[in-house]
């Protein structure tokens, strides 16, 4: 029961309260770049969710069971980035074989998931939050992916409407997107204090 409680709290906290996009600024680049259409944003979110769940869990295991035991924390960043690059490669090969049309529509954005800050950021934050249970780490990784998908889909929905809105000339494009993101993050601040 206690474990379940911790895991559930971890999930809610990482999706809503510590949403990586709105409170930690991670993944802002794809957030600004790709979120023009809702279906693309959703596909992107799912791909990121898979990679982040996989690599978050795996890096937690490597970090806790291998690197810390052997005192090799110095090589942590290099190991993490190799795991992430591997996971992305896996997704890329899978999509190319089974969903070629989706693969084509992603184009350059797919390999760029490697450099998506959400993923490396989460792996590092798992360490900062002192997650000390494998299940907790896995659930939080999954939650981070869900949180990112949610953020990017909300943004895509708003941007579809923004394209027909009357925005001042100089604010068109990235500036208005950032301001919208600011207002969204203000809204998400309402969730803070919900737990703890």
């Amino acid at each position: 029961m206690d474990t379940l409680n911790v895991v559930l709290m971890g999930f809610i906290s990482v999706v809503l309260i510590n949403n990586l996009v709105f409170t930690k600024f991670l993944g802002t680049c794809p957030y600004l770049g790709v979120s023009g259409r809702i279906d693309m944003a959703f596909g992107m979110g799912l791909a990121v969710t898979f990679v982040v769940t996989f690599s978050g869990t795996l890096t937690w295991m490597i970090d806790n069971w291998i690197l810390m035991k052997l005192g090799l924390e110095v090589t942590r960043y290099v190991c993490f980035i190799v795991v992430i690059a591997g996971a992305v490669q896996l997704v890329e090969m899978y999509l190319r074989k089974f969903f070629p049309s989706l693969y084509d529509s992603f184009g350059i954005f797919l390999p760029l998931i490697t450099t998506n800050c959400v993923i490396l950021g989460l792996c590092l934050f798992l360490n900062v939050w002192m997650v000390n249970h494998l299940l907790d780490a896995a659930v939080r990784s999954f939650g981070a992916g869900i949180g990112f998908t949610m953020a990017i889909c909300i943004m895509a929905g708003i941007r579809e409407n923004l394209s027909i809105a009357d925005v001042p000339e100089c604010l068109k494009g990235a500036p208005i997107t950032l301001i919208t993101a600011g207002l969204l993050s203000l809204a998400f601040m309402g969730f803070s204090g919900m737990i703890r």
Partner: peptide, 11 residues
């Protein structure tokens, strides 16, 4: 807070 960062950079 995060809001300030997004707004200032946007402006």
């Amino acid at each position: 807070m995060p809001v300030g960062a997004f707004l200032t950079l946007g402006l």
